[in-house]
Measured scan of single mutants.
Amino acid sequence: RLHIEVEGTELMKKLVEEAKRRNLNVRAKVENGKWIIEID
């Protein structure tokens, strides 16, 4: 499991799109103003 903290929506969208393209499980949520992304 990969755990990433990202500031900025554009970067988050790119990460999520790339993960979906590779058929990975992606969860994204906002915590303290940062995107928290978990990829399995």
Rank of each mutant, 00 (worst) to 15 (best):
R1M: 14
R1I: 14
R1E: 07
R1F: 14
R1H: 13
R1T: 14
R1C: 15
R1S: 13
R1L: 14
R1Y: 14
R1K: 13
L2R: 05
L2S: 04
L2W: 15
L2A: 05
L2M: 07
L2E: 06
H3F: 14
H3Y: 14
H3S: 12
H3D: 08
I4P: 03
I4F: 13
I4N: 03
I4A: 04
E5M: 12
E5S: 10
V6W: 06
V6G: 09
V6R: 03
V6E: 03
V6P: 02
V6N: 03
V6F: 07
V6S: 02
V6A: 04
V6M: 05
V6I: 09
E7M: 12
E7T: 13
E7K: 12
E7R: 10
E7S: 12
E7Q: 11
G8N: 15
G8Q: 11
G8T: 15
G8V: 07
G8W: 09
G8F: 11
T9H: 11
T9F: 15
T9K: 10
T9N: 09
T9W: 15
E10S: 06
E10W: 13
E10N: 06
E10Y: 08
E10K: 10
E10G: 07
E10T: 06
E10Q: 09
L11K: 08
L11I: 11
L11E: 14
M12C: 15
M12R: 02
M12P: 01
M12V: 05
M12D: 00
M12N: 01
M12S: 02
M12W: 09
K13T: 08
K13P: 01
K13D: 04
K13Y: 11
K13V: 10
K13E: 13
K14Y: 11
K14A: 11
K14E: 07
L15H: 02
L15Y: 10
L15A: 03
L15Q: 00
L15K: 01
L15I: 15
L15D: 00
L15V: 11
L15R: 01
L15N: 00
V16K: 04
V16G: 01
V16T: 03
V16R: 03
V16P: 00
V16A: 02
V16L: 09
V16H: 02
V16C: 03
E17N: 09
E17G: 07
E17K: 11
E17R: 13
E17T: 07
E17P: 00
E17F: 09
E18W: 15
E18M: 12
E18Y: 13
A19G: 03
A19M: 13
A19L: 15
A19Q: 01
A19F: 14
K20G: 04
K20Q: 08
R21Y: 05
R21D: 05
R21V: 04
R21P: 01
R21M: 08
R21A: 09
R21L: 08
R21T: 03
R21Q: 07
R21I: 08
R22G: 05
R22H: 10
R22A: 11
R22S: 06
R22D: 04
R22W: 10
R22Q: 12
N23V: 03
L24Q: 06
L24M: 08
L24K: 05
L24H: 06
N25S: 13
N25F: 11
N25I: 12
N25V: 13
N25P: 08
V26A: 03
V26I: 05
V26N: 00
V26G: 01
V26Y: 07
V26L: 04
V26M: 02
V26E: 00
V26D: 00
V26R: 00
R27M: 10
R27N: 10
R27P: 01
R27V: 14
R27D: 05
R27A: 10
R27L: 11
R27G: 04
A28S: 06
A28V: 15
A28W: 10
A28D: 01
A28L: 13
A28Q: 04
K29D: 04
K29C: 03
K29N: 05
K29M: 08
V30N: 14
V30T: 09
V30L: 15
V30Q: 15
V30W: 15
V30I: 14
V30P: 08
V30H: 15
E31A: 10
E31M: 11
E31W: 07
E31Q: 12
E31R: 09
N32Y: 05
N32W: 03
N32A: 07
N32H: 08
N32V: 02
G33Q: 03
G33N: 06
G33Y: 02
G33L: 04
K34T: 06
K34F: 09
K34H: 09
K34S: 05
K34Q: 05
K34L: 09
K34V: 12
W35K: 00
W35Y: 05
W35E: 00
W35H: 02
W35N: 01
I36W: 03
I36D: 01
I36T: 04
I36Y: 06
I36K: 04
I36S: 02
I36N: 02
I37P: 00
I37M: 01
I37S: 00
I37R: 00
I37G: 00
I37L: 06
I37Y: 01
E38Q: 09
E38A: 04
E38V: 13
E38S: 09
E38H: 08
E38I: 14
I39D: 01
I39L: 05
I39T: 02
I39V: 06
I39A: 02
D40H: 08
D40S: 13
D40R: 09
D40M: 11
D40I: 12
D40Y: 15
D40F: 15
D40Q: 08
